[in-house]
């Protein structure tokens, strides 16, 4: 479903991604972990070209991501993204947030889009909040609304960049539950997260990054119980201590 080859990204003199290859099969859940600054967000953002790579290619469902313009917008519509800071449209209600793109990009009628939006909001458990503004919701509710907004485009794959890192601890569970549900329903997902429990339970594969490179990749049980590289071992020792 997603095919990354030789991805390079520099910010000035700093190389954020170095020759990254990654394949995500249809229905697969890939969790990306690694220390801060290792390039996880940059990789995630290159997958829908919010960040323009300096070299390498990204294919989604066989089609190479175009450089800019309408064709890129069309392909982006097929890859949903959920951000650490939610990024709900502040001036629109939750329902309007979820219906905007289906109406403007997919050309759905308003009524159809609203019906689908309400179903999705019910599915993520915030149907009662549909007519509120984002700022009136808790962080956990906002992130679930953001997931519903991404799902409303019926994407082929979903990208999550630390979806629970901005949340109070008691709200992390409700968001992870929604994500676990999606994974069980067969959604193709790339998830950057520090939630090791989620990675262990839900991931089909774990990708460990450090210094802009993919250092190790494997099934979660194997990776967590017997990491093959020293860097992964060091990292796990640090995060699993807490």
């Amino acid at each position: 479903m997603i095919e990354v080859r030789g991805l390079h990204k520099r910010f000035g003199a700093h190389t954020a991604l170095r020759d990254v290859d990654l394949d995500v099969a249809k229905g697969e859940v890939v969790v990306v972990i690694g220390p801060s600054g290792s390039g996880k967000s940059t990789l995630c953002r290159c997958l829908n070209r919010l960040e323009t790579p300096d070299a390498g290619s990204v294919r989604v469902d066989g089609a190479e991501l175009p450089a800019e313009g309408r064709a890129l917008a069309r392909l982006r519509a097929d890859v949903g993204m959920v951000f650490q800071s939610f990024n709900l449209f502040q001036h629109k209600t939750v329902l309007e947030n979820v219906t905007l793109a289906p109406v403007k990009v997919r050309g759905l009628s308003r009524a159809e889009a609203q019906q689908r939006a309400r179903e999705l909001l019910d599915r993520v458990g915030i149907g009662a909040q549909a007519d509120k503004l984002p700022a009136q919701l808790s962080g956990g509710q906002q992130q679930r609304a953001a997931i519903a907004r991404a799902l409303a485009m019926r994407p082929k794959a979903l990208l999550f960049d630390e979806p629970t890192s901005a949340l109070d601890p008691e709200m992390i569970g409700e968001v992870l539950d929604v994500m676990t549900g999606l994974a069980h329903d067969g959604m193709t997902m790339v998830v950057v997260t520090h939630e090791m429990g989620f990675a262990r339970r839900v991931a089909d594969r774990v990708v460990f990054m450090a210094d802009g490179e993919v250092v190790e990749t494997g099934a979660p049980a194997a990776f967590f119980d017997s990491p093959a590289t020293d860097r992964a071992r060091d990292f796990l020792a640090k995060v699993l201590d807490h």
Partner: peptide
């Protein structure tokens, strides 16, 4: 805000 909009295909 703009990133979320573009990520949705606008």
């Amino acid at each position: 805000q703009g990133e979320a909009a573009r990520a949705l295909g606008l």
